[in-house]
C-alpha cells in the first residue's frame, strides 16, 4: 500500500468554496478535460495588462481536482501567462521526479506531495492549470 493521499489538508482544500462559481463578467474563460476520467474544469478570469486579477472555477471531478482548483485560485492573483506555465512546470516536475533527481515541491503546492507516488492522479492536480492556460492562450491568440 502507498501513502494515503486523503490527508486532512487536502480534504479541507477540496471543501473550500470561496472561488467556486462564476464571475459577474469574466474577461476570459478556459476549459480543460481529462479524457481518461471525464473530469472537466472551467475557469473564468478577470485580467488586466495580461495579469490575472481574480479566478473562479466550475469543476466536475474528483477530490484532488477540486482541491487543486481551490489551491490555484487562492494563489493566482498577479500571475501572467508565463507565470502560469512556470507554476505548472514546477508542480509537474515535483510530482514526477523521483530518487536523487527529486525536485522539491514549491511551498504553495507542497500540500499535494503525498500524491507524487500516484502517477495516475497527477493529471487531476494539473487540470486546473491546463484550464487557465487554455484561457490565457485563447486571449493571446485573440490579441
Amino acid at each position: 500500500m502507498t501513502e494515503d493521499i486523503y490527508q486532512d489538508p487536502i480534504i479541507r482544500l477540496s471543501k473550500q468554496r470561496e472561488h467556486d462559481g462564476f464571475l459577474d463578467s469574466p474577461d476570459i474563460r478556459g476549459t480543460a478535460d481529462n479524457p481518461l476520467c471525464g473530469d472537466r474544469v472551467t475557469v473564468e478570469l478577470d485580467i488586466s495588462d495580461g495579469i490575472i486579477r481574480h479566478m473562479k472555477y466550475q469543476v466536475r471531478g474528483c477530490l484532488l481536482t477540486r482541491a487543486s482548483c481551490a489551491n490555484l485560485a487562492g494563489m493566482i492573483e498577479g500571475v501572467d501567462i508565463s507565470g502560469i506555465h512556470r507554476l505548472r512546470n514546477e508542480f509537474n516536475r515535483a510530482l514526477s521526479s523521483q530518487g536523487s533527481d527529486r525536485h522539491e515541491f514549491p511551498p504553495p503546492v507542497a500540500v499535494f506531495s503525498p500524491v507524487a507516488p500516484h502517477k495516475s492522479r497527477h493529471s487531476c492536480l494539473l487540470l486546473p492549470y491546463d484550464a487557465v492556460i487554455d484561457a490565457m492562450d485563447a486571449q493571446v491568440s485573440a490579441d
Binding site: 500500500m1 501513502e3 494515503d4 481518461l36 476520467c37 471525464g38 471531478g61
Partner: peptide
C-alpha cells in the same frame, strides 16, 4: 458527493482493495 476515483483510491490506500472507478469503457 464522492468521485468514483476517490472511492477507489481511498480503499486502495487504506485497505488494499482493488476496485474500478470511472466509465468502465461504457460512457
Amino acid at each position: 458527493g464522492i468521485h468514483p476515483h476517490d472511492v477507489c483510491q481511498f480503499l486502495s490506500d487504506r485497505y488494499d482493495i482493488a476496485l474500478r472507478g470511472g466509465f468502465h469503457c461504457a460512457q
